[in-house]
């Protein structure tokens, strides 16, 4: 029931977005689709477009992601990893957002995205097609250290 409501809400939100400068195609509005599209657009250098998908994913699924995170005390085992779909996709979106903000030179926003991921969504996992999960929150922690040192360099 909750999922159905979310999809309806998402559809409405998607229609409202059509009138914006970028006509996003949210596809089936699933978190995996939105995350995949965000990756793709970032890869093409279309950062603003990627952020549209990221924001949509966060808007629709962040509450569920936080719930899933609250139910974990460590990384889910590989065989159950995909059960935490919202956590995984929303967390990954925060990682992509951090990458985009870095490329845009917006260090403060990048740090905010990475901190959110490392702090609130730390058990998120991202599937690598080579056959394993990697951990965006750990990567975010690495980026945070890097950015923090770069900010020290600027002092």
């Amino acid at each position: 029931m909750l999922s159905a409501r979310l999809i309806i809400l998402a559809a409405v939100a998607g229609i409202l977005c059509v009138g914006a400068s970028y006509a996003a195609d949210f596809g089936d509005f699933s978190s995996s689709t939105l995350t995949s599209k965000a990756w793709d657009e970032m890869g093409k250098g279309n950062y603003d477009e990627a952020l549209v998908y990221i924001n949509k994913c966060k808007e629709m699924y962040e509450a569920e992601a936080l719930k899933q995170q609250a139910g974990l005390s460590s990384f889910a085992p590989k065989e159950n990893g995909h059960d935490y779909w919202a956590l995984n996709d929303v967390g990954t979106c925060y990682y992509i957002e951090g990458q985009i903000r870095e490329k845009q030179g917006d260090t403060a926003s990048a740090i905010a995205a990475y901190k959110k991921l490392a702090g609130s969504l730390k058990y998120c996992q991202c599937w690598d097609n080579k056959g394993w999960f990697w951990h965006p929150a750990e990567a975010a922690e690495g980026r945070l250290k890097q950015l923090e040192f770069e900010s020290i360099l600027d002092q």
Binding site: G142, K145, Q146, L147, F149, E150, L153
Partner: peptide, 10 residues
């Protein structure tokens, strides 16, 4: 050069 410095340190 800036990113490198941070990478070495981190």
């Amino acid at each position: 050069s800036k990113a490198k410095a941070a990478m070495y340190y981190v």
